[in-house]
Design a protein around this nucleic acid. Structure first.
Lengths: 222, 222
DNA sequence: ACTGTTGCCTAACGATCGTTCGGTCGTCGT
DNA sequence: ACGACGACCGAACGATCGTTAGGCAACAGT
C-alpha cells in the first residue's frame, strides 16, 4: 500500500515549496568570525539580507536600518558595500575549504565519505552563508572574486583526485568521473536551499545520507 | 597509474571554475515561444542579462540597449520590468513541468529514469532559462510567483510518487526517500550552472548518466 | 483623403541608489 | 585638565533607477 508511505516513518515528508531562496531561518556565521560590535552586526544582517534578496536587491539603507544605524555609519566600518559581500564570500569559502581539507579518510571510500560529509555539513549548518557564497559571487568585481575562485578550484580538485584514486584502485565503478563530480558536489550545494528549521533532520543525518548517496554514485558496492 | 587519468579518455576533464553564474553561452528559449519582433528580442536579451547579472543587477536601460531600442519602447511591449521576468519564469516552469509530465515509463525504474532524463535535459538544453527560473523567483511579487510555485510542487510530487512506488514494490532500496528526492533533483538543477559549450557532452549524455546516478541513489541493483 | 492604430522616439518625472562631508558626541591616555 | 580619537550622525552629492507623458512617422481600413 502506498498510503502508509505518506508520513515520516516511511520517510515521505513533503518538501516545502516556497518562494524564498532559502528555507533556513537562523542567521549564523562560523565561530571563527568575530561578531562583537557593529562590524559583526553588519556582517550578520548583510548575510541575512543578501541571502534573502541578493546583493543588488539590498540597499545600503536596508542594511543600515537592519543594523540600527545610519547609512553613513556603515562606511566607518567597511569602505564599500561590495566589501561587505566580499568579506562574507571570503568567510564562506574559507570555512568550506577548511572543512574539506580537514576531512579524514585513508582509502578512497572513506575519503569520499568524509569529504562529502563535510561538504554537506557546511551547506546544512550555514545555509545562508553558502547561498551568498555560491549565488552572489557574480556581483563581485573580478579582483575581489579571484581568491574565492582559487579556493573553489582547490576544493574541486580534491574531489576529482579522490574519484580518480578510487577508479585506479578499482573500488569505484562509475561511467564518468567528471559527471560524478558535478553530481556529487551539485546535490550537496542544493542542501543550502532546502535545509531549514522545518526539516526533521540534523545536519549530520543529512551529511551521512548524502555521503551514502555519493558512494552509490561512485559505484561502491555496499 | 593516475597519470593517464588526466585526459578525456579517462573521463577526467577539469571543471571550469569561473565567476559567472552559468557556463553556457547560447541564449535560447523553447521553440514554443514566439521570438519574432521586438517582444521576442526583449525576452531573449532579458534572459541573457537576468541569467548573467540577476534581475536587480540589470536595469531597464541595460535591457533596452541590448535590444537596440530606447527604454520607453520597452513599455510598449511589457507593462513593467517585473513582467518580463515573470514571463521568463513562466516559460521556464511550463517547459520544465511539460517535460516531466511527458516522461514515459511504466514501472518505477523506467519512470525514474525517464523523469530524471527530462529533468536534466531541461537544465542542459536551456541553462539560462533554468537559472533565471530557479534563482530569480524571489525577485517576483508573491502573486506573480504563485503559478510557478504550484508547478514546482507538482513536479516535486511526481518524483516523490515514483520513489514511494518503487519502495512499495521493493525495487528501490534507499535510506530516506525525502533526502533522495532532494539529492536527485538537486544534482539535476546544478547542471544549469556548469553545462556549456566548454563541456564535451551532449545534453542526452549528461541526462543518461544522471539518470543512472539517480537509479544508484535509489538503490536499484544494476 | 481621412482617421485610427501601431511602433518608436525624446524628455523628463520623482524616487532611490552608493557614497562623502563636516560635525558632535563620549572615552581614554597622559 | 586636555587633546586625540573612534563611533556615530544629519545632510547632501551626483548618478541612476523604473516609469510616464507627449509627439512623430508609417501604415491600415474605409
Amino acid at each position: 500500500m502506498g498510503l502508509v508511505a505518506n508520513d515520516r516513518s516511511a520517510g515521505n515528508v513533503t518538501i516545502p515549496v516556497e518562494q524564498r531562496r532559502i528555507a533556513a531561518e537562523e542567521v549564523r556565521l562560523p565561530p571563527s568570525v568575530l561578531l562583537e560590535g557593529t562590524p559583526g552586526r553588519i556582517l550578520l544582517e548583510a548575510l541575512r539580507l543578501f541571502a534573502e534578496r541578493g546583493f543588488h536587491g539590498t540597499s545600503i539603507r536596508d542594511l543600515a536600518e537592519a543594523c540600527g544605524i545610519r547609512p553613513a555609519t556603515l562606511y566607518a566600518h567597511f569602505p564599500a558595500k561590495e566589501q561587505v559581500l566580499a568579506e562574507l564570500i571570503r568567510i564562506g569559502h574559507e570555512d568550506h575549504y577548511g572543512r574539506l581539507a580537514r576531512a579524514g579518510g585513508t582509502d578512497p571510500v572513506s575519503r569520499l565519505r568524509a569529504v562529502v560529509r563535510e561538504h554537506v555539513l557546511a551547506h546544512a549548518e550555514y545555509p545562508l552563508l553558502a547561498t551568498v557564497a555560491n549565488n552572489e559571487l557574480h556581483a563581485l568585481s573580478a579582483e575581489m572574486a579571484a581568491p574565492a575562485l582559487l579556493i573553489r578550484a582547490d576544493g574541486r580538485q580534491l574531489l576529482i583526485d579522490i574519484l580518480n584514486a578510487g577508479i585506479d584502485e578499482g573500488v569505484f565503478a562509475l561511467p564518468d568521473p567528471f559527471l560524478a563530480v558535478t553530481a556529487i558536489s551539485g546535490m550537496g550545494m542544493r542542501v543550502a536551499n532546502w535545509y531549514g528549521s522545518g526539516v526533521p533532520y540534523t545536519p549530520e543525518e543529512v551529511a551521512d545520507t548524502y555521503a551514502e548517496f555519493a558512494l552509490r554514485v561512485a559505484g561502491v558496492s555496499t
